[in-house]
Write a protein that binds this DNA or RNA. Structure first.
Lengths: 190, 190
DNA sequence: GAAATAGTGTGATCTACATCACATCAAAAT
DNA sequence: ATTTTGATGTGATGTAGATCACACTATTTC
């Protein structure tokens, strides 16, 4: 866990300035979690009092339709923050599932601690402000892509953005993320 | 402008606590802007050193394809914050256009002032943090909709979410926001 | 208030992609 | 090591929605 916390510290320092005392305080609020491939970080119907920073591994966050069809909202890997933010923010119940596509390690923070620390440590509020602005921007790019690009273009853009992802996960998940059927993806991904 | 600033103060107070001194300081950094229908707030290729809070009116933020086809990313009305956040955040050049669908009034803040004040006034950092988290969540809902719902479902959801929008703007813009052709929309919006 | 421009509806046709159905191959699980 | 389960490719067929074409009606604009 010490090593993981050190990585997290660097992650913070890439975006904001944090003093050593602040870091000591912040870091004391994280816990460590380790999961194997196929285990769940968040399951539909749960409370979601935590958000997770991925130390290593790869997870998918997705929504299940009644039919059982799954729609992937996000692949998250090293250095990403994940949660069901909707449930997290509104203290509601999760409508998303997040599970591991590879063995993974996380640093875990509770909602209450985050809100408390964001008031106490302005740099932290700024960190999350900047992170979520960036998340907003990249989702906006995704919306644009869904509206104006063909499935093939979206696939090529994804390969360009995350070249190794396509190697790391089954194509059916890539398809589900792109909003296209497995079969159609197979016809141009070869 | 005084009246507009008062409204903005209430808008802040809905989300965070701000003292009167803080407000005095924050509010001194806003300027006022008034535009008529069809005038541009942001045009492709411009620098985007500002973000805008809409006092009254309605704008559309959109992207133009080479063909001239337009894709609407967002309708923004009273109480919304708008800008080309990508260009704004990265000090880049705008790829979006934002123009007025109705006569409109704005309170304007510069990027530099925002960053400066977010460091000086933690409550402000928290305000924007919470706002952009909410923006992120609602874009996530939109991505879900684009992936799993039919155009008709998306239209009905929009009508439910913003019932008066459909009255306020031409249907072709609604279509462009939903990612569907004008003609197709017309076939089920009757 | 006449002319020009923008908004809207509706048919006919076309197309990207979904769905179904099956075959092959790789990888877990017993 | 053999069975079971998951991943992938590929044909045949179906369909939501795009595109084209035109008519009609509001709304600007001069």
């Amino acid at each position: 866990m010490e090593e993981a916390l050190l990585k997290l510290k660097h992650h913070f320092l890439e975006t904001v300035d944090i003093t050593d005392e602040e870091w000591k305080y912040i870091s004391s609020h994280f816990t460590f979690k380790r999961l194997k491939k196929h285990q769940f970080l968040i399951q539909e119907g749960m409370n979601v009092p935590h958000e997770f920073w991925i130390v290593k591994g790869l997870v998918k966050s997705y929504f299940l339709e009644e039919s059982g069809k799954e729609y992937i909202l996000q692949f998250a890997l090293e250095n990403y923050w994940v949660s069901d933010f909707h449930a997290y923010q509104n203290h509601g119940i999760s409508t998303l599932n997040i599970d591991c596509l590879e063995d993974a390690e996380f640093l875990v923070m509770s909602f209450d601690d985050r809100e408390k620390m964001c008031v106490e440590v302005p740099a932290l509020a700024n960190f999350f402000r900047i992170k979520s602005t960036k998340g907003y921007i990249s989702l906006q790019q995704r919306v644009m892509g869904l509206m104006k690009d063909s499935a093939e273009k979206r696939f090529n853009d994804l390969v360009e953005k995350l070249p190794n992802l396509v190697q790391r996960v089954p194509k059916k998940y890539i398809a589900s993320y792109l909003g296209v059927s497995r079969e159609t993806l197979s016809r141009f991904s070869k």
